[in-house]
Design a protein around this nucleic acid. Structure first.
Lengths: 195, 195
DNA sequence: AGGCTTAAATGAATGGTGTTTATTTAAGCC
DNA sequence: GGCTTAAATAAACACCATTCATTTAAGCCT
């Protein structure tokens, strides 16, 4: 076939993105292929390359969406909370639960590497930093006297820890100790930190 | 060519493993291929499949070695230390530094997934748990009165945190906050924990 | 020494992948 | 109805993991 004009460029991009996301959710990075995406939307592979530069760009856009999804989840569960400590605890739990419930999207976001030389776009870096900002903000409320530098360091240490628990929860590789209740584990880490 | 008998089966396996390790170190998972390994040792691809069941088995053996390497590094830097807190701090620093200095081997160990259905062999799980055991042991010295269950939980929380910092150090994806001194970050996390 | 057995090694094939490009198709306009 | 042009395709390229029939040579037996 040739020109069909069933959909606008934007619609097509959207179709590709949601088909790709579904495929990632179902089969993970290992089972993903451009051909499968094309088949899913009833177009040929070539068309995908008129909509996206390459597979990495497609992944990058998907990751932007995943970061947004985590941010929304984080916001949903914390914005009504006034107590900063409570908010941080809740945020940590949501973060870890997201990794557990959406392991394939989580892996794509944090484990997919761009080819050497090309950098993660600023927009994506921002979306990830935004998650961290949420925590930093709450931590500031908790320790208003701390200077900006030590606060950032403290927040980085805390959230790196939470990220570690998320890795543990999502991957079965780090099966150290028979711990399975990651909610409790998260609480222990956060509480230990908010001395 | 046919039968050459230049090397024993064991020698050949060893040649494959070191060539594969070199390739992983140089090019990472993305640049790895069985064909490149075969070319590097002067044999054909088919021969690799007489020595290893498939690529995943080769990776699994490599990962066993990486886990050993981390364990050795951890032991080297902690066995002479008597103070448990000091030992844990040192262990955490070594762990994070390994991730920074050997990112590709580290990624293969913690990010490579076997195809759905097949499990990580017991031997490999043990090698990873052994790392964790080292920390748990020191933590026990520090809190001898704690019961085994809470100790395990506490150790898991602490080491998950350290693992999180290692992820942060190795990947540039988690560029939250401008923190670059991961040694200091590690100390902050550990010290915060050893309240 | 010459033949036989058998393990070592190959080479080619199968079916997959990402990516590029010449070509075809049809929609909208004159 | 013909022309232009954008949309879409089909086929190609160069890889990849994996398998397997075939070839080669080493070691043994007569």
């Amino acid at each position: 076939m040739g020109r069909r004009n069933d959909h606008t460029r934007e619609q097509l991009r959207e179709m590709v993105l949601s088909a790709a996301e579904l495929l990632i959710v179902r089969e993970g990075m290992a089972g993903f292929s451009m051909r499968k995406v094309a088949r899913a939307i009833g177009y040929t592979v070539g068309q995908l390359y008129l909509l996206f530069k390459n597979q990495d760009e497609l992944f990058t856009v998907l990751n932007e969406r995943t970061a947004d999804a985590i941010y929304s989840a984080l916001l949903d569960e914390t914005e009504t909370l006034n107590d900063p400590a409570e908010a941080i605890r809740a945020a940590a739990r949501v973060y870890v639960r997201f990794a557990q419930r959406h392991p394939n999207r989580w892996q794509l976001l944090f484990e997919h590497r761009l080819p050497a030389g090309s950098e993660v776009p600023k927009a994506n870096q921002m979306k990830v930093q935004r998650l961290f900002g949420l925590v930093q903000q709450r931590l500031q409320c908790l320790a208003p006297e701390a200077d900006a530098d030590t606060l950032r360091c403290e927040a980085a240490a805390l959230w790196s820890g939470v990220h570690g628990v998320a890795v543990l929860a999502e991957s079965n590789k780090l099966n150290w100790s028979g711990v399975t209740d990651f909610g409790a584990l998260t609480d222990r880490l956060v509480d230990g930190f908010l001395k």
